[in-house]
Design a protein around this nucleic acid. Structure first.
Lengths: 215, 215
DNA sequence: GCTTAATTGATAATATTGTATCGATAATTG
DNA sequence: CAATTATCGATACAATATTATCAATTAAGC
């Protein structure tokens, strides 16, 4: 049986980036304190959820005042390991790959995409200021740079092949944007990202809404 | 208090596209039946999860044989409303927008992107065989085509503005790829898509893995 | 046909997540 | 400085999701 440890408080963990973003905005606006109510309102959550989530990250508030913005930001960054950036590479510089390369928000979340690779060596050069290399150079460069995270944006049929390369190159975490299951050895974690899930949710919400309207 | 209906069986709903994809592959391979065990193995789930999920969609299996592939596919499509495609438009033909325009998998999930819009009228033309129009034509065209779903891929600072246009144009569901909360009237549903959530999860999984390795 | 093995589906148990209640605390107001 | 009010945090409760158990059913093999 493969290692089967459940990740407790997963929803809380997934909400952390939201808090971080909003706290950043709030700080920029010059506010030093913020209440759970304010955050909840701004993020479309319940105040009690906010309080519990912040408590998980070890953040304490003061009655009548709320939470100290700066302290909260630091606590979340620490809790989530966002303050020690991890180098990552991306494979597959198609549209999705380029979109990810251009997304500036990842640095705040501890992810530093240092390079991209593509099997089409015609794409070599730079995209959004990040170097793009031919895939043939993948293993060597990853090993040289001691890359920890690989972002997989290739067409599905190449997914496993590239995954094997990543594992070979010492990558420990794979962010998988293909709709394939990846076989990886123990000690390597895979995070699947499947847009279809969100679409399914939207689809069902919509049809329930339509039903309500009929009644 | 805003409408507060919880969506039960949400995880099940979000897994449906996976099943559909795998069942399609299995059908292409010529298999007429498939066991929950097989699906679970192929999708990295537990067999019992598969059985329960299929049961929710009204799919019955036969002992010793498993589930009829064709029947299961049709049942899921019916359950999820995937067989009556909904027309959608996309706003913001940047990299992410283009990636979504080029993704062929959505038709199987009942989503038919019929056009895209961009404020930069220089982008007008076609992308991945889909027409791209200037944003000025948005409202009229949406109304003409009776568009139900809008996909929001613009930079965050334009998110609310474009949302308002969508609502105005009669759109009922918004798939929001910006990291902003959208204000919409009752009767319009928003599905947020935030890549940061997955990254947060990966980040925590990785650091737990690293800790395990140390022990 | 009878036995065996595989597989389902029903039921129950457990774990996780979300929500409500309420006393405690600190700033504000009079 | 006392009363009031906003806000937190602890506890308990409820809803949801996952996992385990096991009898029932069907196909296959003898």
């Amino acid at each position: 049986m493969p290692d089967k440890k459940r990740l407790t408080k997963l929803p809380t963990i997934r909400r952390m980036p939201m808090y971080l973003r909003m706290l950043g905005k709030v700080r920029k606006d010059g506010m030093e304190h913020v209440s759970s109510n304010f955050l909840a309102e701004a993020l479309d959550l319940e105040a009690i959820v906010v309080r519990k989530d912040l408590a998980v990250a070890g953040i304490l508030g003061k009655p009548r005042v709320g939470f100290e913005v700066q302290t909260a930001i630091e606590a979340i960054e620490r809790f989530m390991n966002f303050n020690s950036p991890t180098d990552a590479v991306l494979v597959g510089a198609g549209h999705l790959g380029c979109a990810l390369l251009g997304y500036t928000g990842f640095v705040n979340l501890g992810l530093n995409i240092v390079a991209a690779f593509d099997s089409d060596s015609g794409k070599s050069g730079t995209i959004h200021d990040k170097p793009v290399y031919p895939l043939t150079e993948f293993t060597q460069r990853c090993k040289d740079m001691k890359i920890q995270i690989g972002i997989l944006c290739v067409p599905g049929r190449f997914a496993q092949e590239v995954t094997d390369m990543m594992v070979q190159a010492g990558i420990k975490g794979i962010w998988n944007f293909t709709p394939r299951k990846l076989n990886v050895p123990q000690g390597v974690v895979v995070q699947r990202e499947d847009l279809a899930e969100g679409l399914a949710e939207l689809s069902v919400k919509l049809s329930r809404m339509a039903q309500l309207a009929e009644e």
